[in-house]
Design a protein around this nucleic acid. Structure first.
Lengths: 165, 165
DNA sequence: AGGTTATCTATCGCACGCGATATAATCGCG
DNA sequence: CGCGATTATATCGCGTGCGATAGATAACCT
């Protein structure tokens, strides 16, 4: 019959897929304390690092687009963590700004610790870093050509000539 | 200000999260040819290896539960790839069986190739295997211990102080 | 200037993932 | 045997992801 033995773990894509699910579940207790979902927490991380970013700017860092971010940001606004206001200079953009409550949440978050990394790697920080780098390298090779996010934001973009297709 | 520079890639959880998204996008062209979503494809993989499994059996392999699988399986049934029938011996269970169309899809799938693994690893199979193993090891350390139901009860002697909670 | 094109955000629809709960069948135990 | 506990699946609600598309505003071009 079709009793071909199947080991799903032989598929790299399933390994990553299922690992991401497992990580999500492992993060859940911490996020519940903050009252945030994981994507919401990522947005707060981005805003804690730099307030007043645009929807698109946040999306560049998180690899998300407005169809995902707009509803998410509205929920964060309803929860009282952020304000959403059109940029006066460019009315197409929406600037996301932390409220006092949103900034305060950062202190709560700092008090919490991601416990599962220690539990899994048992102090072997090098192994954790190596794995992290390999995974991000894999991701960056898969993503369509987009400028490396954090660094590009630092330097003022000199007007260059993008080669057109 | 709060201009702490943020490198999200320093977080292992974000690395995995974003890598899983990237892998999903990379798989999309292949899945579109098959007319399946990625979770649907995983279910088909499981069934191609062993037909006639129960909902729970499939869920064990994919780390999913009936709240996710039931609607997904109904869609596969609507698409004509599977049948869902109650097990005669145990009417609680639902057996999932491939249709002829479902089996035929396997041949189509075999003709397709996951191209991005080669593109990313450029023939370095060892690197791909090593990464895969590290990721699955991470996942397995994160997942709660699942005891094979009946067997664990046998070995357990009569220490009848159930954990109060 | 005016018309075209590009950019930015929002909206809609669908498919997961999952917590909470419901329902039905089976098991366990006196 | 009967009744409570357990198991298997289903249902409901919400929050993402994401393709497709719409709408408004800005940039561009001759």
């Amino acid at each position: 019959m079709t009793e071909t033995r199947l080991d799903l773990d032989q598929y790299l894509c399933f390994a990553i897929h299922s690992a991401a699910q497992a990580v999500g579940r492992a993060n859940k207790p911490l996020l519940d304390k903050l009252g945030l979902t994981y994507p919401q927490f990522l947005v707060m991380l981005v805003l804690w690092a730099e307030d007043g970013q645009t929807v698109g700017g946040i999306g560049d860092r998180l690899f998300l687009e407005s169809n995902t971010l707009t509803p998410l940001l509205k929920r964060l606004e309803t929860a009282g963590y952020i304000h959403r206001t059109r940029d006066a200079a460019d009315e197409r953009q929406v600037r996301i700004r932390l409220t006092e409550k949103g900034r305060a949440l950062r202190e709560t978050a700092k008090g919490e610790k991601i416990e599962w990394v220690d539990r899994v790697f048992e102090g072997d920080q090098d192994a954790a870093q190596a794995l992290r780098q390999r995974i991000t390298a894999l991701r960056d090779k898969l993503l369509p050509e987009k400028l490396p996010p954090a660094k590009a934001a630092l330097a003022k973009p000199a007007s260059d000539k993008p080669p057109k297709e």
